[in-house]
Design a protein around this nucleic acid. Structure first.
Length: 944
RNA sequence: GCUCGGAUGGUGGAACUGGUAGACACGCAGGACUUAAAAUCCUGUUCGCCCUAAAGCGAGUGCGGGUUCGAUUCCCGCUCCGAGUACCA
């Protein structure tokens, strides 16, 4: 029989499922290897051909590692909470759980058709109560923890209470809110319980606090920073505004430094690490206080009382430029603005604030060129020179970063320079290396300081340390590290997410008892906010803890369930009966993910949150590794490739039913129409299928070139409306899963983005048929010989054994597909049907094309299903040893001819051959050979 | 603006530490088999020059320069495309 891929693939997929071929144990004499894919959100559209790219790569890797003798954990699951199912529920009333279930079944079918070697017994679904029980449990651990900067890790809140009881806040180094109280042990003990709880909330790693959030009215929920793109929601593209709300947050900032440092030790793509570094945004600098002498401003600022004079605190990364600070700028939202504004300036300031408020986030971003601001009328004192410094407000200073106030150094900072120039403020040079100050600012760190009091004549490094010491002496400043990273908002006013396991008493949040987990999502009549604007959970009947206390109505964000899921996979079905998210033995066996494959769009979301939760769980001793994902590969995005037909437009500008081929379209007035890519092959339109594509095309006429209708091409996002979605199901139906797997790899480097193009898939299909043919005679009878292979046959085999090893280890899957083709072409030419060659070749190819190789493996008489645990053949370099090499001989770097020369010869002997060679003479034309470059096994180059 | 990628035939791409540029495949052209088509197989296919072929010559990895016996690969300067990020003090 010819290669019957449909029958073979179905049969082996069934065999693997029935025999649980890829089920893995949590213990083994073999070394462990954990290969993980980013689990999908099961969307209603199903998988398109771009989705499996990463899964195919990871499956090849997992299968290869099994052959190499590893105990491989390779699981799959679903990130099944999310907005689309809920939006669908709002429109149709269908419960999101039902939609999700349907979509998951469809995904599963599609994944099964690709022949992946997942251990499905370990599947997880984040929306499953047995799973989100543990998401809620982790939330509870975070609530019960604080971050101790002394030990530099998270500790139990009970420890903090003990500290308060023993010594109050004295000497405490903790990550906490800015407004924590200072108290002694005695004062603490005197506090009523509600106040104790209020205070503790300021330390908890997940906490409730009034904060400015990204509110999306259209979605009716808050969004995290990474879910907002250019002022619009990432999902749906709705406008997002800033709003103050009581919100659950995660104190990820406590881990900022560890998240930054951890990047150095992990094998991730550099651009991705760089994105995380930028997102964390560490800047090293100083906090400096500019004093406000009582009477120098009109308002009565109460903030300084009892603690010395009032001051404005600024953050700067260039404390060395402090002598160049000629004014201060504070954000329009800064809390002192009202207190600092003099009566004369009041109108101007109020106008300016008004103006700023009207600007949307987007305007503010787009319009970075216009300089605007207003003078408060008040002055602060320079901390070192005591000179009076005017205080301005301007919207280029952001309330949310640093202290919301900056010292403006117009000679060293371009924005400050523009501001000073516009408003006529002084620009003072501070370095002898500064040039062109009348044209622009110069932020150089070179040169020696001038006009700079105690640092005159010094260079950058000494100046900085000198100043910080001085400021500390004066009590006017200190070194400070600032991060751009904000705490992560954790609540969503949505239905389809994990309920927060919290109830309220006297307005304060308390955790439910652990025994009451999971807190199961209640039924609601509608998936919309309540009439009073409460989240959908407010609609649930009797949604009260112990029938009495109000539950939290927000649910958790999409990233909650995905921030720890790789640990749940470590728990087998048996393990999941235990009362733990994963047994300690399983965690200490699997430890971490050795290889993680997924898209780079998760750089500042999932991949950062996961690292945060992992570090937290490590602090508490539940997991063993500081970093969860040792090696990470970003697969490229597969874009769509749209095809177009060109409809001719008549004189009146109406579309006709006549279509012109791409090459001739310039001779007519046309409009381009998307045409379904599935009826186009190699840009040639299938005319009959086109006529059937839509009723109005049934009588379409065509103007052809060379008898064919050639379509236009453009690269766009893959989407239904562009008719460029290619489904893996169709490809598998036509060519089989093995062909699809190999073709997706053959398309190009894994990490590179590329448009999907079905042109060329036949090359891979032909390859598999040729491979099948090696094992069969012309009548397709299985025909394998036990004869001893020739040297050439061994050579072909061992070349591929080594090549595939090298390629897989460096994730270069496309090149090994080429090499397989070369190998099969060679063996076909050699008419090789020797078992000793073919059996090993079956093993080497198995990770790429698992179905056809399983079939041939059992046809060769081996135990069915044991291919996946066969041993990868041992590479023997002896078969590749050559004693002659065809040297390219070049003259002045230009290759002229090839010469077969024994590899054992020395340079002197080779030179002799060169000098004696007649054919070379014509290239020399009497010129003298100055030098002969000879690289053994590579090249001979004559310099003349 | 800043950061990070990338640019090689008609197309996808290969060339791993500087050593024969264009592997492998698609497409295209021609041929064999066939009544015909499909399938399969064979030959050619970077561009230019030479009537054609063989042979040969010249150019050639976005552009300009450099290092080197030798550069797709290393260095400097630019152009274009893509991604991320943005008054971050």
């Amino acid at each position: 029989m010819d290669y019957q891929f449909r029958d073979i693939e179905k049969r082996w997929q069934k065999f693997w499922a029935e025999n649980q071929t890829f089920k893995v144990d949590n213990s083994s004499a073999k070394p462990k290897y954990y290969v993980l894919d980013m689990f999908p959100y099961p969307s209603g559209a199903g998988l398109h051909v771009g989705h499996p790219l990463g899964y195919i790569a990871s499956d090849i890797f997992a299968r290869y590692k099994r052959l190499k003798g590893f105990n491989v954990l390779h699981p799959m699951g679903y990130d099944s909470f999310g907005l689309p199912a809920e939006q669908y529920a709002i429109q149709t009333g269908q419960h999101p759980a039902i939609t999700t279930e349907t979509n998951i079944n469809r995904y599963r079918e599609q994944l099964d058709n690709l022949g992946f070697s997942f251990d499905w017994s370990r599947e997880v679904r984040t929306s499953d109560p047995d799973y989100y029980k543990w998401t809620q449990w982790i939330f509870m651990q975070l609530f019960n923890s604080w971050y101790n900067l002394e030990s530099n890790k998270a500790e139990s809140i009970d420890e903090l209470i003990k500290i308060f009881e023993n010594s109050g806040t004295a000497g405490l180094k903790a990550v906490c809110d800015d407004d924590v109280c200072i108290f002694s042990a005695e004062e603490w003990k005197e506090l009523p319980d509600t106040e104790k709880q209020t205070e503790l909330l300021k330390y908890r790693l997940t906490y409730l606090r009034e904060s400015t959030v990204n509110w999306c009215p259209a979605l009716g929920t808050v969004l995290a920073n990474d879910e907002v793109k250019d002022g619009y929601s990432e999902r749906g593209g709705y406008p997002v505004e800033q709003k103050k709300m009581m919100q659950w947050s995660m104190r990820i900032t406590a881990y900022a430094d560890r998240l930054l440092q951890g990047l150095d030790g992990i094998d991730w793509p550099d651009p991705l690490k760089e994105m995380q570094r930028n997102w964390i945004g560490k800047s090293v600098g100083a906090l400096v206080r500019f004093g406000l002498t009582p009477g120098s401003y009109p308002g009565s600022l109460s903030f300084g009382e009892g603690r010395g004079e009032a001051f404005i605190e600024v953050f700067t990364t260039r404390v060395d430029t402090i002598y160049g600070a000629t004014f201060l700028v504070i954000a329009p939202e800064h809390e002192y603005v009202a207190g600092l504004t003099t009566p004369e300036q009041e109108t101007e300031i109020l106008n300016y604030i008004d103006q700023t408020k009207k600007k949307t986030e987007l305007d503010r971003m787009a319009d970075t060129k216009t300089v605007s601001g207003a003078f408060t009328g008040s002055y602060a004192r320079h901390p070192i020179t005591n000179e009076p410094i005017p205080i301005w407000i301007a919207d280029y200073v952001l309330a949310g970063y640093g202290t919301g106030a900056v010292m403006a150094v117009p000679s060293g900072d371009q924005r400050d320079w523009l501001f000073a120039t516009k408003f006529g403020l002084p620009i003072v040079a501070i370095s002898d290396a500064q040039t062109n100050l009348d044209k622009e600012a110069d932020s150089t760190k070179e040169g020696h300081y001038i006009n700079s009091g105690i640092i005159n004549g010094l260079k950058y490094k000494e100046a900085t340390t000198t100043l910080i010491t001085k400021l500390e002496e004066l009590g006017a400043g200190k070194a400070k590290v600032n991060f751009r990273l904000r705490d992560a908002i954790f609540g969503r006013q949505r239905y389809w997410g994990e309920p927060v396991p919290v109830y309220f008493k006297d307005g304060l949040p308390y955790l439910i008892d652990r025994e009451d987990l999971p807190l199961v999502l209640p039924e609601v009549d509608k998936y919309l906010p309540t009439e009073s604007g409460e989240p959908p959970l407010g609609r649930a009947d009797n949604w009260k803890y112990k029938d009495d206390l109000e539950y939290e109505l927000s649910t958790m964000p999409g990233w909650a369930g995905s921030s720890w899921y790789w640990y749940r996979y470590m728990a087998s079905q048996e393990d999941r009966k235990q009362d733990t998210f994963a047994p300690a033995e399983a965690i200490s066996y699997w430890k971490d993910v050795d290889l993680y494959i997924g898209g780079s769009e998760h750089a500042t979301g999932h991949l950062l949150y996961s690292r945060f939760w992992n570090k937290f769980l490590k602090d508490l001793g539940y997991v063993v590794e500081e970093e969860p994902f040792k090696k990470l590969i970003n697969q490229g995005m597969i874009q769509g490739r749209s095809n177009f037909v060109y409809r001719i437009i008549d004189e009146e500008g109406r579309g006709t039913n006549k279509f012109v081929s791409n090459g001739l379209k310039s001779q007519y007035t046309t409009s381009a129409l998307h045409v379904d890519v599935n009826i186009v092959m190699n840009e040639i339109l299938d005319l009959e299928k086109f006529k059937a594509f839509r009723p109005e095309f049934a009588n379409a006429e065509f103007i052809l070139e060379n008898g064919k209708y050639i379509c236009g091409v453009e690269v766009e996002k893959m989407s239904k409306s562009k008719f460029n979605v290619v489904s893996p199901d169709d490809i598998i139906e036509r060519f089989g899963a093995d062909t699809l797997r190999m073709y997706e790899m053959f398309l190009g480097p894994l990490e590179q983005s590329k448009p999907w193009n079905t042109n060329g898939i036949e090359g891979v299909f032909k390859f598999l048929r040729k491979f099948w043919k090696l094992f069969h005679d012309d009548e397709f009878n299985f025909n394998v010989s036990d004869e001893e292979p020739s040297k050439a046959e061994y050579k072909a085999l061992h070349k591929i054994i080594r090549k595939v090893e090298e390629d897989i280890e460096r994730f270069s899957f496309n090149t090994s597909v080429s090499s397989f083709m070369i190998c099969v072409n060679e063996l076909t030419d050699l008419k090789c049907n020797k078992r000793k060659i073919l059996q090993d070749l079956v093993i080497v190819l198995a990770p790429y094309a698992p179905h056809i190789t399983e079939e041939l493996w059992s046809l060769l008489g081996n135990a069915p299903g044991k291919l996946s645990v066969a041993a990868y053949p041992q590479f023997n370099p002896e078969y590749l040893v050559e004693n002659e090499f065809s040297y390219p001989v070049s003259v002045n770097g230009k290759t002229r001819m090839n010469l077969n020369i024994s590899l054992s010869l020395s340079q002197a002997e080779v030179e002799e051959i060169i000098h004696a060679n007649e054919d070379l003479k014509k290239y020399l034309e009497g010129k003298n050979i100055k030098k002969i470059i000879f690289v053994k096994g590579k090249i001979i180059n004559l310099v003349v």
